[in-house]
């Protein structure tokens, strides 16, 4: 009997098994490639922010403050948290990321933050925000429902009630201090301007390539809510408090990179990139820092992570 032409069942099964194995090998690699692409775009966003900060410095002779209160109201001391919306660094650099129209429409620095949001058209623009402030790897929603900002007459101090509104989420936070979030005498790249403190290139004495300017903050990590950041406007600025202004646009080095074991971890840096986060340095370069970086969380500046955040510790580090 002549053997009929065609494949036997076993041959077919072997072929299918081999194809299955190849696909199984390839699929995780494809997912990794997708995350790599998102991380690359995230890194490019930071690069653009770096260029904008440099251009801002060319014009203003200093870097932007992390947040700015309305001066008249600071002097009158009637800017309680939950009532006052403060402009943040991401608003001040808008003209340098080709968003002059948004800058002009919101009247950044001219109107108080909450008054700017009191208008329906301006609120719409603040809700839309600028895409370059969102990291594609971030799982955050378009509007930040966990960090609301005062609008109109404002709400309660933690800004959780109806007087506060949701605006566009940001993934990027400025570097404020190597220990806690500080309003006065901060030693990082940006802080509140009403203490008369500011940073320019000359004050980054560790060298601009050894000092962090801006980093990332995740929305959620391993099921732990870190609440990302807001674009343009923040709540009033109680010092070292997760629910109020200062923690919106800035982060500090007390909390380890990607920490999820303390309620205050939402005042630090974090990202959903596996194993670490991207950081923009003052010189405009973007680096990926691993979460295994040398970091001692006590109150003295004595580890690589803190040396990178602090601008004047006298310990320029090169291998990180």
């Amino acid at each position: 009997m002549a053997r009929s032409k065609g494949f036997t069942l076993v041959e077919l099964l072997v072929v299918i098994a081999i194809i299955g194995v190849l696909i199984a090998l390839l699929l995780p690699a494809v997912q990794q490639a997708r995350e790599a692409a998102r991380r690359m775009q995230c890194s490019n966003n930071l690069k653009q922010i770096g260029l904008a900060l440099h251009n801002y410095h060319d014009v203003a002779k200093r870097f932007p403050p992390a947040l700015q209160l309305d001066r008249a109201r600071v002097l009158a001391s009637n800017c309680p948290e939950g009532k006052c919306g403060t402009w943040t660094w991401s608003a001040f650099i808008l003209p340098f990321v080709e968003q002059s129209n948004l800058y002009d429409q919101l009247q950044v620095g001219k109107l108080a933050g909450e008054l700017s949001l009191g208008d329906a058209d301006r609120l719409k623009s603040a809700e839309a925000g600028f895409d370059g402030y969102r990291c594609p790897s971030s799982t955050a929603p378009e509007l930040n429902s966990e960090r609301k900002v005062p609008a109109g007459s404002g709400g309660n101090t933690d800004c959780t009630d109806a007087g506060c509104l949701q605006i566009a989420t940001s993934s990027y936070v400025g570097s404020n201090d190597s220990y806690n979030l500080e309003r006065a005498n901060w030693d990082g790249f940006m802080g509140r301007d009403s203490e008369g403190q500011y940073v320019n290139f000359a004050r980054v004495t560790d060298g601009s390539s050894n000092t962090i300017a801006v980093g990332e903050r995740a929305w959620m990590l391993a099921g732990f809510s870190l609440r990302a950041s807001t674009q343009l406007i923040a709540n009033g600025d109680t010092e070292d408090h997760s629910r109020q202004g200062y923690s919106y646009p800035a982060a500090a080095g007390r909390w380890p990179l990607n920490c999820t074991n303390n309620a205050a971890c939402d005042r630090g840096f974090s990202s959903t990139h596996p194993g670490g986060a991207l950081f923009l340095f003052v010189d405009g370069s973007v680096h990926f820092l691993a979460e295994t970086i040398d970091h001692n969380t006590n109150s003295t500046t004595n580890s690589t992570y803190e040396y990178l955040i602090r601008r004047d510790d006298g310990n320029p580090v090169s291998n990180f």
Partner: peptide, 11 residues
């Protein structure tokens, strides 16, 4: 640390 508001109230 004790947290003070901008108005000096204890938060």
């Amino acid at each position: 640390a004790r947290v003070l508001t901008d108005n000096g109230k204890v938060q």
